[in-house]
Design a protein around this nucleic acid. Structure first.
Lengths: 367, 367
DNA sequence: CTGAAAGCGCTTACAG
DNA sequence: CTGAAAGCGCTTACAG
């Protein structure tokens, strides 16, 4: 009966702490139930009487209560956070992907923790991310060292690569059929009657560049053609603009160019026009990706389009799979589509993929 | 001496739980110190002997230990998470902002929780965000209902608006000097000798559109001119392309257009060229914002450029201010800059802001 | 400078 | 279906 046991000996509740925070205990009190009951009322599938749940929800609404995701994450070891590592957020290929990840994860009750890693050093961002007990890590436009890949695995945080492939590190990856797209471009340009082919590479250290160039050249060779030149454009308008300026000023300039992305395709068109070349009469251009400017009337680029929606959906399926990632890393390759517009001569019998939107009665609207 | 008190009565440590997780207790054991010492070793400014800290750090490294950010956030009530609400992630104005927020927050040990709210309903995303006990909420390209603004305030989660202003809701805001930029455009176009002015609006429900149009018209009027027409472009290439097609086909078409953003400025140039109009000889175009395509050679747009770096820096200063947000909401307006390029006739004595990059020896490189 | 201990706000066996 | 209680992994007064 001594007061010793009733009187907590630690610090009293610090004023700073409870400061307006509404907890499950407050709700329990108001609803006249136990704190566990409140917790159950907010846990889908938990065993609570419907009437109890209703009382709890009502009290919670009156109080403006929401479960504390940090506390929940601490005890369940599931934060519902997914690290979204975006190395090149200003590359126009990524914003639609970021948007889709955002919306899709939110629909599942999860949230993207956005990480913009130092250029060429995704590794540096990983320890930070791991602290938040993220449920998964999605890495776009970059890859990880084997050491960091191992750290993620050890921490049981599934990591996948998006738009990159590196089997060697034991990471699964989601990407498009880069080689298939490059082959489509090769066929399209050969069938269009061209003879001098050039390739504008993105970053030389990216697997996408390698896959696209290799397949493009291979298919050219298979059909008895060769690649006249391969230049560097760094996925960037200005870099490629300069390199293309030199390329197209040469007397033996190509009559067909395949670009590693559409931004460099736009640059190619601008350079060509400035040199007085007509597109596609004097020069045909096909590029990878279909970001907004590619369909702008000034460019009207023929492109290899990646299935962004499916790629994101596949990624989310993989990282949320109940059994976790496959033990053996897999590479999911999704099919691409050639969108035929006006920047390359049409092979006989081939038509544009669709009527130009500016000739339609009801132009499809965009957000 | 009864064993009753030694033997915990609750559940035994669930196997699922500790599953490979390394905690401060593990580190403490290895370093031969108490768990509190480990915690202190990882808390900047905490009182630990340097030697102790070194021992702890060493043990932590050997074990691959990192403090659990969820547990830390739970007890400190600071998650080091900042909700970054991006309504229009695919608008090219925002990716550079996302990138800067990402890098700047990370430099401060914080991380952006990315939220892509339903179109026109940022409110819906807020309760979710509040669950994560974010330290602050930054809302771009949208605003909040008064009710939700109040919820954020009640939860002591400072919310600020970025690139929007709505004093009525009691939210502080960071934006650029929209009115000043619009006035610069007006002067520039009037001084350039134009006489028929048009405005292409972004979204009519945005404060930025309102501020830009109002100031543009006011300055026109002050100098004895009037706005011939104002059309809707929804900040979007296709929308504005169509609206501009109608506008420029009219016999009384304008000879000067001020666009609510640069994407619509690009559309204006494309439409003009397709109608055989020369830019800037027949039509001058000035637009707000300076995203990548604006400086592409095909467009070479004269623009009002927003100080993105400073706007982000100011935002971060506000949300991390030790004393919290100002009691009275403030609107921080940062100065804009007119970047004179080739899409509008130059007033007498005015020059381009700089030599076109494609005429320079060493073109400035971009990531 | 250090350790023992309370407590942050939850979830979840456990025992009715 | 429900409540009492342990425990998730930390931080931080408190008392040396």
């Amino acid at each position: 009966m001594k007061g010793d046991e009733e009187r907590p000996r630690g610090r009293r509740r610090a004023g700073r702490q409870r400061d307006g925070r509404i907890t499950s205990l407050d709700v329990a009190e108001r609803a006249g139930v136990s704190q566990s009951a409140v917790s159950r009322a907010f846990t889908p599938g938990a065993s609570v009487a419907p009437a109890t749940r209703a009382r709890v929800i009502e009290a919670a609404n009156e109080l403006g209560y929401r479960p504390n995701a940090l506390a929940r994450g601490l005890i369940t070891d599931r934060s519902n956070l997914v690290a979204l590592v975006v190395s090149r957020p200003t590359d126009p290929f990524y914003p639609p992907i970021i948007e889709r990840f955002g919306r899709s994860l939110q629909a599942l009750g999860m949230h993207p923790l956005l990480i913009v890693p130092p250029i060429d050093d995704v590794d540096a961002a990983i320890p930070d991310v791991l602290q938040y007990q993220v449920d998964a890590i999605v890495i776009t436009a970059a890859t990880l060292s084997s050491r960091m890949a191992a750290e993620c695995a050890k921490a049981k945080r599934p990591a996948v690569l998006f738009n990159r492939t590196t089997v060697s590190h034991g990471l699964s990856a989601i990407c498009c059929d880069n080689a298939g797209g490059a082959r489509m471009a090769a066929h399209f340009l050969i069938d269009g009657g061209h003879s001098r082919f050039a390739f504008v590479a993105g970053r030389r250290d990216s697997s996408t560049t390698l896959e696209r160039e290799t397949a493009f050249v291979a298919r050219l060779n298979e059909r008895g053609k060769g690649l006249a030149r391969s230049i560097d454009g760094a996925y960037d308008y200005r870099h490629s603009h300069q390199a293309l300026g030199e390329l197209l000023a040469r007397p033996d300039r190509p009559d067909a160019i395949f670009c590693g992305n559409d931004i460099m395709g736009c640059a190619a068109i601008d350079v060509a026009r400035n040199l007085g070349l007509r597109v596609p009469e004097d020069l045909s251009i096909v590029a990878f990706n279909d970001t907004d400017p590619a369909s702008w009337r000034a460019y009207d680029l023929t492109v290899v389009s990646q299935p962004i929606e499916e790629m994101v959906a596949t990624t989310i399926e993989m990282i949320t799979a109940p059994d976790g990632l496959p033990a053996e890393p897999v590479i999911k390759r999704l099919p691409v589509r050639l969108v035929v517009r006006g920047s390359a001569r049409l092979p006989p019998g081939v038509q544009r993929s669709s009527t130009p939107w500016w000739q339609r009665e009801d132009p499809s609207r965009r957000g």
